[in-house]
Structure formats: structure tokens, C-alpha cells
């Protein structure tokens, strides 16, 4: 339980920070696509007898970088490239599962998360990746924010925009696979998107928005884990429903005018 909470909080912070850049780049579903491609990676690992998360990391990050390159090279639109990535991951996974005769139990935990079963090694890995990614975000904060805000102007200021774009995709890949244990493949984009959509309605500046998003995200994850533990229901669904509740509350407050635009 302690392990689940520590891992959950780290993932909550990670997803809301990386997700904020994705949402603002109109890349909200990219996390979902990477998660689906990681499904293919998990299947490869199970078939080859390798720890499935490792193969998931490799397959997800490589395919996310490749699809980004293909998208730029052949001028494919963002949403179409996401659809390609998403369906090819699932297709690879399904074929491999079919070939191997099926391993339903393990696959189930990757689809829906298994945070209560997280091991000490997993927690160490999650904390290390969270720390590493947050350090990179802080070091390259101006470059990340500027190229998200306006790519052309960032380029004119001498920022290597293309490299930064690949860095965002790389960080998204790492984050998604790391978060699979918490909410599973199917609900990952909820953690990327929902707290940030709520926070953008409240926050004025970028840092304020990020802090609000992180708070919403941590609250959803901690409350979700506790509630699901008490009532013996699935943590993934509970976490996502709580964050949807926060979003609904935010929209409600906003529409009654309590949250003024200024």
C-alpha cells in the first residue's frame, strides 16, 4: 500500500508535467497512441520471456520517434499519425498473443494497471525516471515552453525546435510506459489530459497552471488508490473517475461565473 502510494504520487507528477506540454501542443491523444504501441511491446516481452516492461519501453519509444519522423517527412497530419501508431501497436500485440496461444492474466494487468502489486524495484525505477525527467524539464524549461507556444518564433530565437520535439516524444514514451502499472494501457491518456484541462481553466501563468495540474493529479491518484482499497474496486477506473469529477467541478464553477476570466 505504501509502495502503491509512493509510486502513484510520482507518476501523478510526471504525467501532469509531461501531459501539459502534450495538451498544449494539441497532442493529447499521443500518450494514448504510445500506450497502445506499448501493448505490442508487452506482448513481445511475454513471448520472448523478457520482463515485459523493458520491451515495452523499447518498442514504445522507438515507434513513437519513428512515427514522428514519418509524420514530418511525409507531411501526415498529427491525428492521422496517432491513429497509425495506435492501431499498429494493438495489431502487433494481438498477432503475437495469437501466435503464442495467449497469456491472458498478464495482459489483463497491463491493460488495466496493477498499482497495488508494484514491487520495490518498480518503485525505485519509477522514482528515478520521475526525477530524471523533471530535471530535464527544469533545465530545458524555456526551450520546451517557447517551442510549445510558437514554433516559428522559437526557431527564430535560435532554439533547436526539431530536437526539442523529439525530446518531448521521448519523454512522453518513457512516461507512458512508466505509468502503465498505475492505470494500464487503456486509461493512460486520462492522466495526461484531464488534470491539465482542469488546470488550464484556473491557472494564469504557466508555472501556476502546472502546480494546479500536479495538485489535481496527486489528489486523484491518492484518493483513487485509497477509495479502491477500501471498497475493493479497480484503482485505475477510480482514479480516472475522480479526476473527471474534478474537471466537472471546475467546469461547473466556471459556468456559474465564480471563476472570473480575469
Amino acid at each position: 500500500m505504501h509502495r502503491a502510494l509512493i509510486a502513484g504520487i510520482a507518476i501523478a507528477i510526471l504525467c501532469s508535467v509531461v501531459g501539459l506540454f502534450l495538451v498544449l501542443r494539441r497532442y493529447s491523444l499521443f500518450g494514448d497512441a504510445i500506450a497502445h504501441s506499448s501493448f505490442g511491446g508487452v506482448a513481445v516481452g511475454l513471448l520472448a520471456g523478457v520482463y515485459p516492461l523493458w520491451t515495452a519501453y523499447v518498442v514504445s519509444i522507438v515507434s513513437a520517434l519513428v512515427i514522428t519522423r514519418v509524420k514530418d517527412r511525409f507531411n501526415i497530419s498529427g491525428d492521422a499519425s496517432i491513429a497509425v501508431l495506435l492501431s499498429s501497436g494493438i495489431a502487433v500485440g494481438l498477432v503475437i498473443i495469437g501466435l503464442s496461444g495467449g497469456f491472458t492474466l498478464d495482459i489483463f494487468s497491463f491493460l488495466f494497471g496493477s498499482i497495488l502489486l508494484v514491487s520495490v524495484d518498480d518503485v525505485v525505477l519509477i522514482l528515478a525516471l520521475t526525477g530524471g525527467i523533471l530535471i530535464v524539464v527544469l533545465l530545458l524549461f524555456r526551450e520546451l515552453l517557447y517551442s510549445t507556444f510558437n514554433e516559428e518564433q522559437a526557431k527564430v530565437s535560435g532554439i533547436p525546435v526539431e530536437k526539442i520535439n523529439y525530446l518531448v516524444v521521448f519523454m512522453a514514451g518513457l512516461t507512458v510506459v512508466t505509468s502503465i502499472q498505475l492505470v494500464g494501457v487503456l486509461l493512460i491518456s486520462a492522466l495526461f489530459v484531464i488534470p491539465n484541462v482542469s488546470a488550464i481553466m484556473y491557472g494564469k501563468g504557466f508555472k501556476q497552471t502546472a502546480i494546479i495540474s500536479i495538485s489535481f493529479s496527486i489528489f486523484s491518484v491518492v484518493a483513487g488508490i485509497l477509495v479502491s482499497y477500501i471498497f475493493d474496486i479497480t484503482p485505475a477506473g477510480t482514479i480516472v473517475l475522480i479526476s473527471i469529477g474534478l474537471l466537472a467541478g471546475t467546469m461547473g464553477i466556471k459556468s456559474t461565473g465564480l471563476l472570473s476570466k480575469n
Binding site: 498544449l24 524555456r142 507556444f149 488550464i200 494564469k204
Partner: peptide, 14 residues
């Protein structure tokens, strides 16, 4: 993006 959450100071800081 009209809803981009940055203040005037954030933009100038870029």
C-alpha cells in the same frame, strides 16, 4: 492558442 496559460511576463521571459 487563445487559452495558452502564460502571462505577459511568461511570454516576455521566453
Amino acid at each position: 492558442e487563445k487559452n495558452f496559460p502564460v502571462t505577459v511576463k511568461d511570454v516576455v521571459r521566453m
